[in-house]
């Protein structure tokens, strides 16, 4: 069997997703041996511009350069995987849509800064089609490992669709909403083992909205619990500002 040609790429982000691939310390050498890695700048110097069977992309599309890179990767890849929250949901940088650029640019940039920004920071599936998404900030390293295994044996990967609350309850946590903490658990896709809420931190929604997120019920419940809607909305914007805006249109 010929080994699949695999590439790991990064647009604008923190490199944490590619690091999460490597952080499978016990298996990474087997993974590397099982595939033909053509480019993976984190651990390799080689550059490659040929065809790819599997292409992992971390980071979001914030600049013309990112736009160019991601389109070219699409053209030469059979399977594209959006890896992590920047690629899947837009992440922190997508919040820039709420600001006037002159307000958020560091003062030191002044007007002579040559900027390559596009209008708004996007997730990659807003620009190109992707076959799979592995969400999370960071994406769960074990999920990445499982994904690679499944794809290698030709199985189809299924996203985790249930809300964070399911895993949170299974871990026997008491509900943060009852402790006056805004938590997005009810409307966010799990698969994270509820790691944040288990450690006493609210769910900020890094894995994205569930397909059937019921905003009406969620907002009603949040209002009843006495939370301010503008504060709930701000937490929702943290990792998925453009996505939330689209989902809420007309609601």
């Amino acid at each position: 069997m010929t080994k699949p040609r695999v590439g790991f790429y990064d647009l604008t982000g923190c490199q944490g997703c590619l690091l999460s691939v490597i952080f499978n310390e016990d298996e990474i050498l087997n993974i590397i041996n099982a595939v033909d890695i053509k480019e993976f700048r984190f651990i390799m110097g080689e550059k490659y511009d040929g065809e790819l069977d599997i292409c992992f992309i971390e980071g979001g599309v914030v600049s013309n350069d990112d736009m160019d890179v991601v389109k070219k990767l699409r053209e030469r890849s059979k399977i594209v995987i959006a890896l992590g929250t920047c690629a899947c949901e837009g992440n922190i940088q997508a919040m820039r849509k709420f600001h006037d650029k002159k307000d958020i640019e560091p003062l030191t940039y002044k007007k002579n800064h040559q900027n390559d920004d596009i209008d708004e920071a996007r997730a990659i599936d807003e620009v190109i089609e992707v076959e799979y998404k592995i969400p999370g900030c960071p994406p769960d390293r074990e999920e990445i490992k499982e994904f690679i295994k499944q794809v290698l044996i030709g199985k189809k990967w299924h996203d985790y669709k249930d809300p964070v609350c399911i895993e949170c309850k299974l871990r026997e946590n008491s509900c943060l909403l009852d402790k006056d903490v805004i938590c997005l658990g009810p409307i966010i896709k799990g698969g994270c083992k509820a790691v944040c809420t288990t450690n006493g931190l609210k769910c900020y929604g890094c894995r994205g909205l569930t397909d059937d997120a019921n905003f009406e019920e969620y907002f009603k419940m949040m209002k009843e619990k006495g939370f301010r809607m503008d504060e709930v909305k701000k937490i929702m914007d943290t990792f998925m500002a453009r996505r939330v805006e689209k989902a809420l249109k007309g609601k």
């Binding site: 647009l11 958020i104 560091p106």
Partner: peptide, 19 residues
């Protein structure tokens, strides 16, 4: 650096302290 800008500092303004 030719890395795309992410404007972290600016985006923090207006957020709650614990964010």
């Amino acid at each position: 650096s030719t890395e795309g800008s992410r404007y972290f500092q600016g985006l923090l303004v207006g957020r709650r302290w614990d964010d």
